[in-house]
Write a protein that binds this DNA or RNA. Structure first.
Lengths: 223, 223
DNA sequence: CCATCATCTGAACAGATGTTTAGTCTTCTG
DNA sequence: CAGAAGACTAAACATCTGTTCAGATGATGG
């Protein structure tokens, strides 16, 4: 039964070509260019995926599945979500996936929320383990801290990503990751090791006002 | 001489309509919608700005000038670049400018580099002043630290910006800024007051290896 | 008052895009 | 082997895009 296998193969080939194009040229890459890359006609994309949105959905699902599979394997990644992306980008086969994810994060939307939430959940775990081992200090709100650190890492990464030019060079991505990591390593370690603020007056003031508001909410105007 | 004043007025009206549309609908907003907002024909945009790129350039320049003017006025902003944007967004007249800036930052490109570099320069000043006052701890690389903090703030902001829907509600922007600031305040204060890492072993290791590499570069394989 | 010039417009153009349609070709099935 | 079914395509379609063009309008200056 060749039809079934070829069906799967062609579908997968189109999907992979789409992910590659979307990663390189952005999520607005025309269907015709994807079709050309896959060596098929544009109409065939419609036949298999129904519409452009359908193709995007298939790409999203495939990438999410790949990440989910790979996460269990590399769960011991050294902390930041950036590191996981950098590690994956090194493997040629996964570079397009990483590029696609970056494009999605940049564009925002539902998938971004999903991805970031997943990374936050991972960060919560990493940090909890660090706290248990004594290398990471405990937090008053571990979830919020994990989200802040994830947003910082990811946001800074996207902001620095060479995406001004319309095209993203996937081959140069691993090297770019390395350079970026080397660039921020010192200030990041410094920030995470030595407190930026020399005293806790700001934090104390916030904690005081927060506790106060919790104990007697909005009772200030009528003494 | 009415022609000159009207020339300026119409040009400015088109430019402002463009900034508003670009902020709301994204930088790919069609010229025809901008023309409709300004109450003119699409052809008139070409007449005044030559091309779409010309219009974008005029918008960029106008926004940069507005920011430059306003920066000298609100230079005493409490630190992070996010705060400046939040403060500006509250003033109805400036909300479109803020939206436009956010869109530009998201899209990347030369203007992004310019804007971010300016904010980094400001951050260097803020931090230097904080160090002099004794509220901020000194850094081994003030420029890199300023850039890291700026990238963190801006990147996290963009990542959280409700830009999944194609349209950006400028009226809701001030409230969104407030909510966002409130959400990150505790973890941010915590991170900047209490070291995330409980000991300096990672930082020390980096400093050691860095110094070592500076003293005897690449002399390890041939003892 | 007339010529001129800039402002401004409606319509058309040229290209790209997602999608549809009608039909071909191959392969499997009864 | 006939026919059904699915993979696949070329071409057309409909729409939207930035841009161009020929001309109308109206004020300005001699």
């Amino acid at each position: 039964m060749r039809s079934t296998r070829d069906d799967q193969n062609t579908r997968a080939r189109i999907r992979d070509a789409a992910i590659l194009r979307f990663a390189r040229d952005g999520l607005e890459a025309p269907l015709r260019s994807i079709a050309a890359d896959a060596g098929v006609s544009a109409a065939l994309i419609m036949h298999h995926f129904g519409s452009r949105a359908g193709l995007r959905l298939a790409c999203d699902e495939h990438v999410q599945a790949a990440i989910r599979d790979n996460k269990t394997g590399v769960v011991s990644s050294p902390g930041a979500p950036t590191a996981m992306l950098a590690q994956l980008a090194k493997i040629d086969e996964y570079a397009p996936l990483v590029g696609y994810v970056l494009r999605c994060l940049q564009a925002g939307g539902e998938m971004t929320t999903h991805l970031v939430d997943g990374m936050v959940a991972d960060a919560v775990e990493y940090l909890r383990e660090g706290v248990r081992e004594g290398t990471v200090s405990p937090s008053r709100d571990p979830e919020a801290r994990a989200r802040l650190l994830t947003d910082f890492s990811l946001g800074s990464l996207l902001l620095n990503l060479p995406t001004g030019e319309e095209t993203l060079d996937l081959d140069a991505l691993p090297q770019w990751f390395e350079d970026y990591a080397a660039r921020i390593l010192l200030p990041a370690l410094e920030l995470f090791t030595e407190p930026l603020l020399t005293d806790s007056s700001l934090l104390d003031a916030y904690l005081d006002s927060s506790r106060e508001a919790r104990e007697q909410p909005a009772e200030r105007t009528t003494p």
